[in-house]
């Protein structure tokens, strides 16, 4: 393979970032999506709008505000600094925070739709079969929304893989620490190293494709109850 060590590094960071963000997104997004799908709270649309905001904002705008907020003189970064921590800008942690916010709608919306699609009936049936609300969520809603979870994880992962603007703003371009594949490719192209760019881009393309094939094939196999 004609990949440079720093390209391998970028690839590794990208995959690590995507996987970590996806896990965090599922953990945070599931209760949020469940609540949004069940609540009759009137102010729900406000929260939905906030979750959807990264869909319309240019990534640089989001990245810029995150940089300001998380930086040493920003509200969040300043607080972390005051209690003796390291403000999470230009670090892998900063990338994760940025990715989670940036990819949130791609996880919450499919989950919310999947929970909504279950309808109230299976949950009512479960209640008549003595299932507590927590029981109903865990043993009825989650299994029935299974394909929603797959979609949410795939979209969250894929969207984080392709991230560029937010990462550049908040993480900078530190090889081996915050340099992700998309930025590495950009660097290669900037320096007219098209062959290198081809190798990195091609590797990412193949990995992404294989991943999707595996997920969709597996999802089909497991969906025994939907002929």
């Amino acid at each position: 393979m004609n990949l440079q060590p720093e390209d391998w590094n970028a690839l590794w960071i990208t995959l690590k970032l995507a996987a970590t963000s996806t896990i965090i997104l599922i953990v945070l997004g599931t209760p949020l999506a469940w609540w949004l799908s069940q609540t009759r709270f009137r102010g729900k649309f406000l929260l939905e709008a906030i979750v959807a905001l990264p869909l319309v904002l240019p990534p640089t705008v989001l990245g810029f505000y995150l940089l300001v907020a998380l930086g040493p003189s920003g509200p969040v970064g300043g607080f972390i600094k005051a209690i003796g921590g390291q403000p999470p800008v230009f670090s892998f942690e900063g990338l994760i925070i940025g990715s989670v916010i940036y990819s949130m709608p791609f996880v919450v919306q499919p989950l919310q739709d999947a929970f909504k699609a279950i309808g109230t009936r299976p949950l009512e049936v479960a209640a008549t079969l003595r299932a507590t609300p927590w029981d109903r969520f865990w043993f009825v809603a989650v299994p029935l929304a299974r394909s929603g979870f797959v979609t949410a994880a795939v979209l969250g992962f894929a969207h984080t893989l392709g991230e560029f603007g937010v990462v550049l703003m908040i993480g900078g371009n530190i090889p081996g620490e915050t340099q992700v594949v998309s930025i590495a490719i950009y660097d290669h192209v900037e320096s007219l190293a098209y062959t290198k760019a081809h190798w990195v881009a091609g590797t990412l393309l193949v990995i992404s494709f294989l991943l999707l094939v595996a997920v969709y094939a597996g999802n089909r196999k497991f969906r025994v109850w939907k002929p």
Binding site: R121, P122, V125, V140
Partner: peptide
């Protein structure tokens, strides 16, 4: 009492089995 605390059995118009 909430539904799950009532000692009922309920059959709806549609069978509504758990598909999974």
């Amino acid at each position: 009492l909430a539904t799950h605390e009532r000692s009922i059995g309920l059959v709806f118009q549609e069978p509504s089995l758990f598909e999974h």
